[in-house]
Design a protein around this nucleic acid. Structure first.
Lengths: 344, 344
DNA sequence: CTGTTAGCGCGTTCAG
DNA sequence: CTGAACGCGCTAACAG
């Protein structure tokens, strides 16, 4: 039930420093010094000013401050990740890294549309953000925003194609290594690899890491890497094929948690016990997927929050003048659950 | 591999209107008029100015404009929804409603912490946002930010406890109604209801709607509403109980997609065919959950994007002075898939 | 048609 | 210790 009141309850516009000064009976300059803790203000005067400011709920106008300082204390987060799987942890990591409340973040969703991205870019530059973080929808290298921007840019998750830019990405190769090492450590020897879209660099990198670790352990891959899509349906279908072609498989390395969920379903349907007969691993450690699985899913966590914090750190450095460039890969970690180690 | 360059490649600070004016050989005032398409500027002059602006990539300083206009063209989105299940669609809806690029959005994550929320609130007010949208982590009424803020506030998803505030929430009662009506329309008569945490108003509202619709159809509920948690594990456990206690059940109404996923798992384990013997429905229409299910899950879509658009609209109205208040409920819709209607 | 002047809210000189 | 004056980048009102 919605009701409309009389036109505009004449909202009390935000008080200015002048209002504070008038109320305290001093000049704006004195009020400014008093509130900012500068020296050369009589304690009594300062107290009067502070009280006046509190009484009228004075909040300094950051815009006016910014126009003076040349720094706005804002950054733009330009994302193409519709679901927020990467953007939100990165946002949180960035908030933390900046020190709560110090820096405010403009979040813009470009929806993988270059036009919309340019549009948002203009708006952000017009608002004089101190820097930009660009988040991709996948780990494939993306076009650079350009070299002649007035503010530093850090690319997160998806690196820039231009190596002179600064990028921070998860270490997908090592993710593959860690996964295989864990499976080998639990005694698995016949490891099949079910992956997602072959065109994704994440798929390629994880496969590379897995192959390297297999070789290092003196093992052969069990059949080819089975590429498909990042879906449960593909996980189910591929698992059927693996079981048909190589019934002695003892581990399924699935390149995403969703694929792994599908694999678990098929194994269950066919009466294969997890993890006793076949171990299953996923990637991403998406709790929604891993926690509800039976058994719960061991997965490689891509550490998105740490990624976000690091991106924010590098942005702060760049804003401070420490120009760095190149692609930095962030470590990943394994989260062990019941799908590879029997629950006790 | 990261490399550090010489200190601060002396980033070219953003050009100002003065630079444009100087380059075009006119005064700043004329340059301003020319770029803003005001009358009383000679076409040739205008062209010279525009060209100069483009040459040096001039972007007007929104801060300076804002300080004049008293409007910043920014809004704050204060969220407590860590995963972004609600915040991000709402963000996108808001972006659309504001008209792309017109309004930029500060996204702050308060993480259900009142202190942090106050902190962000100060920062946002300091940045002179034109308005605020507050997104809750669930549909339970939340404390108001207060009545004496200098900008209008719209509460989305979780309404404010103060009825004088303006809130926009999904219609959970009608969600329950729609769900039961669909099940009844497909010939179901013995409908059990598995819900989540009993303390959530979303659970209560959906149950209320379901009960109302059942009564309207002249049906009795099949056993009590089974409250538990919003998890797959609870969905599995509760389904076992329903099957044990009322084997003639022909539909399971599950209060979230996750619960429904659990229900599907248990039905499959026990050899019950879906949808032929038992139909299953979820709520939220979370594609990650519904698309991978076997069969794919019919679900009630809470229309988060529409909710966001509406919240943004109401905020724009309030900014424009049309003070409205009260709780507005937004319609929901059903997405029919194979778990209630056999795939053809 | 164009340039000059004033002022938005604030911080920072510099006199008093 | 305090206040007046200046400037940040921009637009509106006026003067030329």
């Amino acid at each position: 039930m919605t009701t409309t009141e009389e036109p505009a309850a004449s909202r009390p516009k935000a008080p200015t420093l002048r209002d504070v000064a008038r109320l305290a009976g001093v000049s704006v300059a004195t009020a400014s010094k008093a509130l900012n803790g500068r020296a050369n203000v009589h304690p009594d005067t300062r107290r009067r000013v502070v009280e006046a400011a509190e009484r009228i709920q004075f909040t300094p106008n950051s815009l006016a401050q910014a126009i003076l300082a040349g720094q706005t204390g804002t950054v733009g987060l330009l994302t193409n990740d519709l679901e927020g799987r990467f953007s939100l942890p990165i946002l949180m990591g960035a908030e933390d890294a900046f020190g709560a409340g110090q820096m405010s973040i403009f979040l813009c969703d470009a929806r993988d549309d270059a036009i919309r991205e340019q549009y948002h870019l203009r708006a952000l530059l017009g608002r004089r953000v101190d820097g930009l973080i660009v988040v991709g929808s996948n780990t494939d290298p993306r076009p650079s925003l350009g070299r002649d921007l007035p503010v530093p840019v850090v690319y997160a998750y998806a690196p820039s194609q231009d190596e002179r830019d600064c990028s921070v990405i998860p270490d997908n190769v090592n993710a593959g290594v860690l996964a295989v090492e864990h499976l080998v450590a639990t005694g698995r020897r016949r490891i099949a690899h079910i992956s997602g879209d072959v065109h994704y660099s994440a798929a390629q990198d994880r496969a590379l890491g897995a192959a390297t670790a297999l070789a290092a352990a003196g093992l052969e891959p069990l059949g080819p890497v089975r590429y498909g899509s990042w879906t449960e349906a593909w996980g189910r279908a591929a698992t059927h094929r693996v079981l048909d072609e190589t019934p002695d498989v003892d581990a399924l390395l699935c390149a995403s948690d969703q694929i792994a969920r599908g694999a678990l379903d098929t194994l269950r349907d066919r009466g294969v016990h997890v993890p006793e007969q076949v171990a299953v691993m996923g990637f991403d450690n998406w709790e929604t997927m891993t926690a509800g699985a039976r058994p719960q899913l061991t997965s490689i966590d891509m550490n998105f929050e740490m990624l976000g914090r690091r991106a924010a750190q590098r942005l702060v450095e760049a804003i401070g003048g420490e120009a760095a460039h190149g692609v930095e890969t962030m470590p990943v970690r394994i989260q062990v659950r019941g799908s590879t180690i029997p629950d006790t």
